[in-house]
């Protein structure tokens, strides 16, 4: 099963290497990893999606916690949370198919961010289901390139998880 871990770390050079190295060394599988600083510039948040059973996730969490620069880890898989991923898709779009593609774009509330002679770049934000759906819908036209940011997530409600507590 996939778990989403929200990890607060010190915003320092080398922290990402430590986390990535830990996953490689202990043989855990990262599905995606997104990282950026939080409202506090000294702290970054990593959103890590990991594949594994409960025992694996327990080890992942505990081993991560042993890294000195890791401040707080939350497995938010079971929590009420909003999660999003951004994806850019370059799709073949000769003039004959452009309208059809634009319709799909509208349905998914995506945006066209670049026009080429024979291709479009489409930006979509959403959860995994939505992203997979649009990818499937565009597939018949020929997808040339896909770039995904990896998932970011935030727990709903007042629960404040910036590590100060």
């Amino acid at each position: 099963m996939k778990h989403t871990l929200s990890v607060l770390v010190e915003n320092k050079p080398g922290v990402l290497t430590r986390v990535a190295g830990l996953f490689a060394r202990r043989g855990y599988n990262i599905d995606s990893l997104a990282v950026g600083r939080t409202e506090n510039p000294e702290i970054s948040r990593m959103t890590i999606v990991v594949e594994g059973d409960d025992r694996v996730i327990e080890q992942v969490t505990k081993q991560l916690h042993k890294l000195i620069e890791v401040i707080k880890i939350n497995d938010i898989t079971e929590d009420e949370h909003v999660h999003r991923e951004l994806i850019l898709i370059k799709v073949n779009a000769d003039p004959a198919h452009r309208m059809e593609i634009m319709q799909i774009v509208n349905v998914f509330r995506a945006r066209v961010v670049d026009f080429g002679r024979n291709s479009l770049i489409i930006e979509v934000t959403g959860d995994e289901g939505k992203i997979n759906a649009i990818e499937n819908s565009l597939h018949p036209f020929g997808i040339r390139e896909v770039v995904r940011t990896g998932k970011v997530a935030m727990v709903r409600g007042p629960k404040h998880k910036n590590g100060k507590s």
Binding site: Q59, Q63, H65
Partner: peptide, 8 residues
């Protein structure tokens, strides 16, 4: 003392 050892 090391929680990561529990159940490892």
């Amino acid at each position: 003392i090391d929680p990561a050892e529990i159940g490892k």
